[in-house]
């Protein structure tokens, strides 16, 4: 990489990209910690992916796409929560997702195919972020982080011992969590795309869990990894002109694999200490 290019990566309109992408990474990494704890990667996939239809619907009626994203991601969270009371959680998530996408295909069919816009919604357009996106993103990230901080202990307890919160309070907690995911989705999808936010929510957090058993450390590590991944991805994307989504996906998966290798190695070295209890028949 030439020195001149390196300087340019940090200059001009790129500053907005750095700032916004860093906020997205912080929020993604923090929410990801709970996504991994609660084994709800499917939800992290479904809400952003399904909310995409909202953007399509909003442009159809001439509204702000951000509004469409917000409405659809919240509706998705609500739908998953409502259906999930009756059915298995993964079935509820799948049905909600496909219905939102079905609506999306309907909205798209009314418009002349706008492939360029669809592509950037899916895979993000981090390099084209304007300064007008900085403040809304900042506000939404602060709201998400604040909500996570408020719910930190109940969420953690419920993730570890799913039976401890009962009945309606458990449903409310789950709904609150889904709404946080929806908030984060609204803010991040226009920036990094549905595909990316999912990678950022799963890979770094899953990797972090391999390195530490302490929740605060895991959270911090998850956020740090997400930020590093996004920074590297922006730099590489800028220099190669390849889509940033590729780098984020590949780096997240690599982080996860390194975490896996680490935990396998430490289990080998640690011997009996980490062995599964004799009674556990892993299915």
């Amino acid at each position: 990489m030439a020195g001149g290019e390196r300087a340019e990566v940090f200059s001009g309109f790129m500053v907005n990209a750095w700032v916004v992408a860093t906020m997205v990474a912080v929020v993604g990494g923090a929410i990801g910690f709970f996504i991994v704890m609660r084994s709800s990667a499917f939800v992290a996939h479904a809400i952003p992916n399904g909310s995409f239809a909202g953007a399509a619907g909003a442009t159809l009626v001439g509204a702000n796409p951000l509004l469409g994203l917000a409405v659809f991601s919240l509706a998705g969270a609500l739908g998953i929560s409502l259906l999930g009371r009756r059915a298995r959680h993964d079935v509820a998530t799948a049905l909600t997702l496909v219905f939102m996408l079905g609506l999306g295909s309907l909205f798209l069919s009314f418009r002349v195919e706008d492939a360029e816009a669809v592509y950037s919604l899916l895979f993000g357009e981090v390099l084209g972020i304007g300064s007008n996106q900085v403040w809304p993103t900042l506000a939404l990230s602060l709201a998400s982080l604040l909500a996570l901080a408020l719910l930190w202990r109940p969420l953690l307890l419920d993730s570890v011992l799913p039976g401890s919160a009962r009945g309606s309070s458990r449903v409310r907690l789950e709904l609150a969590f889904l709404v946080i995911v929806a908030l984060a989705t609204t803010m991040t999808v226009p920036v990094v795309g549905t595909a990316l936010i999912f990678s950022l929510m799963v890979g770094p957090a899953a990797a972090a869990r391999a390195f530490t058993v302490r929740p605060h450390v895991a959270l911090a590590l998850s956020v740090a990894l997400a930020v590093v991944i996004v920074w590297i991805a922006i730099a590489w994307s800028y220099n190669t002109n390849w889509p940033i989504g590729f780098f984020v996906g590949a780096l997240s998966a690599s982080a996860f694999l390194i975490g896996r290798a680490w935990s396998v190695a430490s289990r080998r070295l640690g011997g009996a200490r980490h062995r599964a209890p004799a009674g556990e028949l892993s299915p």
């Binding site: 084994s39 990667a41 895979f123 595909a195 799963v202 989504g245 996906g249 998966a253």
Partner: peptide
Amino acid sequence: ARGRDIATGVVLGAGFGLAALLIY
């Protein structure tokens, strides 16, 4: 059952990333 969710997610994320590149 517990790791399945994450394993699926990681492969899906990587797959999306690769798809972005291929489409580009």
